[in-house]
Design a protein around this nucleic acid. Structure first.
Length: 108
DNA sequence: ACTCTGACGGAAT
DNA sequence: GATTCCGCCAGAG
């Protein structure tokens, strides 16, 4: 059996995402930093892509550093995420972006 | 083991 | 603001 004492990077990242308060968003880099993998922002995306639907991770609260929703592969995902965030009180601009200075998760 | 790609970030241009 | 380049490293073939 493996070492359950040392979680993989994926689990660390997921753990950080779960800490995002409702009605708030966080950037990939922010999550990575919180997980102790400051320069692993890419892995956040890799992990989120493989997330099961029964996951309790609020992946929709994760956006890129530009305050925009990333969509690589599926455009359905982006549209869905936007609706999820709007349902939590997050406003989007006409540019399809959101105001990070207002909605970004603070509390480092 | 190797190569290429990628839900990214940041600095430079 | 848009584009280019680099870093970082997990997945997939």
């Amino acid at each position: 059996m493996e070492n359950a004492n040392q979680p993989n990077n994926a689990q660390k990242l997921l753990s950080a995402v779960r800490k995002i308060p409702k009605g708030t968003v966080a950037t990939y880099g922010q999550i990575a930093k919180r997980a102790g993998l400051s320069r692993n922002a890419r892995q956040v995306g890799t992990v989120l892509k493989g997330l099961p639907e029964d996951s309790d991770v609020p992946w929709h609260r994760v956006v890129n550093a530009l305050g925009k929703i990333s969509d690589r592969g599926d455009g359905v995902f982006a549209g869905l995420q936007r609706q999820m965030l709007e349902a939590e009180g997050i406003e989007f601009t006409d540019n399809g972006k959101l105001d990070l200075s207002v909605h970004q998760w603070r509390e480092r």
